[in-house]
């Protein structure tokens, strides 16, 4: 990876020692999605309390980018008001689209994922957890909007 070594280390650290990777019993928000391209899977569990994300965890399997992004996300949105969590998700997506220059104090470890922009096919891996979070916050319950068509 041509990612700077420090960023690489951050990504690998979250990949090998994921934060908040467990089920959350009794979570009122839960949502699952997968990336059929590579089989990455993420389930996000969240407790909401007083309009804020009180606790958030994830379960999943996949590449270092998808799994480290999920781990970083749980740290970034814990204790954050729902509106602010949505805002961060939006700006994270903006960073992955190359439109938003990340502010270190807001993004924290997430800045490490900026280098993924060089690999367009892998941007999907990085945003997967955030898609699931947004879906969970929307309270939709099931995965990404449109149901797949079945033959």
């Amino acid at each position: 990876m041509a990612l700077d070594d420090i960023y690489k280390e951050v990504i690998l650290d979250h990949y090998k020692n994921p934060r908040n990777k467990r089920e959350l019993p009794g979570a009122e928000l839960q949502c699952h999605a997968n990336n059929p391209l590579c089989g990455d899977e993420i389930t996000v569990f969240a407790h909401v309390d007083g309009g804020a994300v009180a606790e958030v965890t994830f379960q999943g399997a996949g590449c270092s980018i998808s799994q480290s992004s999920a781990s970083m996300m749980t740290e970034a949105v814990t204790g954050v008001k729902i509106g602010d969590a949505r805002g961060l998700a939006e700006r994270f997506r903006g960073m992955m689209a190359g439109d938003v220059e990340p502010a270190e104090d807001e993004f924290g470890d997430l800045v490490a994922l900026k280098g993924v922009v060089q690999y367009p096919i892998r941007i999907k891996c990085a945003v997967l957890a955030w898609d699931v979070l947004q879906e969970a916050l929307d309270g939709a319950g099931s995965a990404s909007g449109a149901q797949p068509h079945t033959v």
Partner: peptide
């Protein structure tokens, strides 16, 4: 090593 990570590293 997940295949996606491997492909990215090999490309380098």
């Amino acid at each position: 090593v997940h295949p996606h990570d491997l492909a990215t590293i090999l490309n380098e």
